[in-house]
Design a protein around this nucleic acid. Structure first.
Length: 249
DNA sequence: AATACGAGCAACCGCAGCGAT
DNA sequence: GATCGCTGCGGTTGCTCGTAT
C-alpha cells in the first residue's frame, strides 16, 4: 500500500483521492455543490474540501493585499496572542488563519523583529511612510490599560502586585481574566459570529464525490437526517440565488 | 534568452484537545 | 476512567511566479 493510499480512506473504497492544487473545474464543482446542497453533510473524510472552502472559496473572504490597518492589527494581536492564527483571524473579517500566517512569515515577521512598521506595498503606503516616517506602529507598545482595544493576555496580569496576593504555587489568572484565555478574549472583544457559525457548520464532514453523485443521479435527494441543516442564512449580505435571502446552508 | 534565486501562496501533515462510547 | 475517533490548529513543504544576473 502506498503512503497516499494509507492516508486515504477512499483508497479502500476504490475512490482515488487526488492531491495537489485544485483546478478551476474542481473549485466550481465544490462551490456549486455547496450552493445547492450545503456544507453539513456527513462523510468520513474530505478535509481538503473543507480547507479549500474555508481558505479560498468562501464568499466572504477578502483577496488581495493586506491593508496597512490590517497589518497593524495583525502585529498588535500577535503581540497579545502569539501564534494563535485562528484567533487573530477572527479579529480580521475576511481573512483566514492560513492567509495571516503566511503573511506573517513572509512580511510581518521581519517587521516585528526589527521593530518596524510593515514595509509599504502600495504607492499610497509609500507616500504615507514618506510623510510620517516609520512610526506606524511600535510593536513594543503594550496595551495594559486597554486603550488600544487589545485584550490583555493572562500572563500580563502576573504583576508583582498581583502575584504578591497569591502564593507562588497558587498562581491563577486575574479576576478579569477567566480560566481560559481564549474565552476571555472572545468575551471581551466579541466574536466573529459569522466566522464561528461557519466553522461550526464544518464540524459535519462530507464527501463531495459521494454527494455530487447522489445529487446528480437522484433528483430530490436530501442529506441524511443526521446532518446539521441550518434554516437561516448564515451571511445575510450574501446572496447566491438573487433573492437576497443569503447564503443558505 | 536562459538560468538562478527569492518571495508569496496554497496545500499538506502531524499533534493536541475534546467529546463520545 | 480508559480508549477511540474526530476536529481544529499551527508548522512545514513545495509549487508558481516575478526578478535579477
Amino acid at each position: 500500500m502506498t503512503e497516499m493510499e494509507k492516508a486515504s480512506p477512499h483508497a479502500e473504497r476504490k475512490m482515488p483521492l487526488r492531491k495537489g492544487a485544485w483546478s478551476p473545474e474542481e473549485d466550481q464543482k465544490l462551490t456549486d455543490y455547496i450552493k445547492r446542497i450545503g456544507i453539513g453533510v456527513r462523510c468520513q473524510s474530505l478535509p481538503s474540501c473543507r480547507l479549500r472552502w474555508m481558505n479560498y472559496l468562501r464568499p466572504d473572504i477578502k483577496r488581495g493585499n493586506f491593508s496597512k490597518e490590517e497589518e497593524e492589527t495583525i502585529l498588535k494581536w500577535h503581540q497579545v496572542l502569539g501564534n494563535r492564527w485562528s484567533a487573530i483571524a477572527s479579529k480580521l473579517s475576511g481573512r483566514t488563519d492560513n492567509e495571516i500566517k503566511n503573511h506573517w512569515h513572509t512580511r510581518l515577521k521581519k517587521c516585528s523583529k526589527n521593530n518596524l512598521a510593515p514595509a509599504p506595498t502600495t504607492v499610497s503606503d509609500i507616500n504615507e511612510v514618506d510623510q510620517n516616517g516609520l512610526s506606524g506602529i511600535d510593536p513594543k507598545v503594550s496595551d495594559l490599560d486597554g486603550s488600544l482595544g487589545i485584550p490583555i493576555s493572562p500572563h500580563l496580569f502576573m504583576t508583582d502586585e498581583y502575584l504578591s496576593s497569591s502564593s507562588s504555587t497558587d498562581v491563577h489568572p486575574h479576576p478579569a481574566v477567566e480560566k481560559d484565555g481564549n474565552q476571555s478574549i472572545d468575551e471581551n472583544f466579541g466574536s466573529s459570529n459569522t466566522f464561528e457559525e461557519l466553522r461550526s457548520l464544518w464540524k459535519q464532514p462530507f464527501s463531495l464525490e459521494e454527494y455530487l453523485c447522489m445529487v446528480e443521479t437522484e433528483p430530490g435527494f436530501m442529506a441524511p437526517t443526521s446532518a446539521v441543516w441550518l434554516q437561516e442564512p448564515i451571511c445575510p449580505s450574501i446572496s447566491y440565488d438573487g433573492t437576497g435571502n443569503g447564503f443558505w446552508i
